[in-house]
């Protein structure tokens, strides 16, 4: 049942021009950022060769590409998720799912996975770009996979926040703005911590950016992975709770 709803949600993005335009725009932005990094590297690679411990191709091109992609997703996710539940409620089509033999968690998870599907398609687009580097050199595949995994988890976390806000908000715009607000706070939470040598562990532990960058280095830490998984769980559970409560309508 979850997959049926997810498949429908996923398809609905691709039968409207939205997904295609989004992919085109993101491709141009990220492609441009990628190619500038490539040029930077080709210019300075001779100098880097002589320094011990200098960053390699992967550090100069791929890691920044994925960092930029993270920021772009921060901007795009609210727009993608704002309509998910909110629009259904406004168009009174949520009734269809409510009177069908499906549970609240089926609805939330189905909608979540459907939207996430579109976002993962874009992640694949981003992930395919580094492969062109193989034409002219070697890449650190381990770090590349770490980056890919980091982005997949990050996007999943973003989408879960978006779903919760879409469930709560009366209006899609409100959902988008509040999603953006929450994400940017969690993203920048550790910005004043990076400068001090005794960072507040709690604040650092809550920051999306901190864990994202940790995975990007290629050093996979169980804490970072679990952070993302728990983050997603929390928001999904809250969404299911909110949807169930709306059905009761005090």
């Amino acid at each position: 049942m979850i997959l049926t709803i997810a498949a429908q949600e996923f398809k609905s993005h691709f039968i409207s021009p939205l997904a295609w335009i989004l992919m085109a725009v993101l491709q141009i932005i990220l492609g441009y950022l990628f190619l500038t990094q490539v040029e930077t590297f080709t210019l300075m690679q001779d100098k880097l060769l002589n320094i011990t411990g200098a960053p390699g191709l992967t550090d100069v091109i791929i890691t920044p590409l994925f960092s930029n992609a993270g920021v772009i997703f921060l901007l795009v996710t609210p727009l993608l998720t704002m309509r998910v539940i909110c629009d259904e409620r406004r168009n009174k089509t949520l009734c269809l799912l409510f009177s069908a033999p499906v549970t609240n968690s089926d609805i939330i998870l189905g909608k979540y996975l459907g939207t996430l599907g579109l976002m993962w398609v874009i992640v694949i687009l981003v992930g395919l770009m580094p492969f062109t580097l193989l034409l002219g050199g070697d890449i650190d595949t381990g770090k590349f996979f770490a980056n890919g995994m980091a982005l997949i988890l990050l996007v999943a976390a973003f989408a879960s926040t978006g779903i919760l806000m879409s469930t709560l908000a009366e209006h899609p715009t409100v959902a988008a703005i509040s999603t953006f607000g929450i994400l940017i706070v969690l993203w920048l939470l550790n910005i004043n911590q990076t400068m001090s040598d005794k960072p507040n562990e709690l604040i650092q532990g809550l920051s999306l950016l901190y864990h994202y960058q940790n995975i990007q280095t290629g050093l996979i830490d169980s804490r970072d992975i679990i952070y993302f998984l728990l983050y997603i769980c929390t928001f999904i559970v809250l969404s299911i709770y909110c949807l169930a409560n709306q059905r009761l309508q005090k």
Partner: peptide, 29 residues
């Protein structure tokens, strides 16, 4: 709910689907 078919006061339709697509989706859920 498996035994009930319900039409609310506003018909719940996904307007960007075709009739067949919409009904197949309803059947599936």
């Amino acid at each position: 709910k498996q035994c009930i078919g319900y039409l609310p006061d506003t018909p719940p339709l996904y307007k960007d689907l075709t009739v067949t697509e919409f009904l197949i989706y309803c059947a599936k859920i």
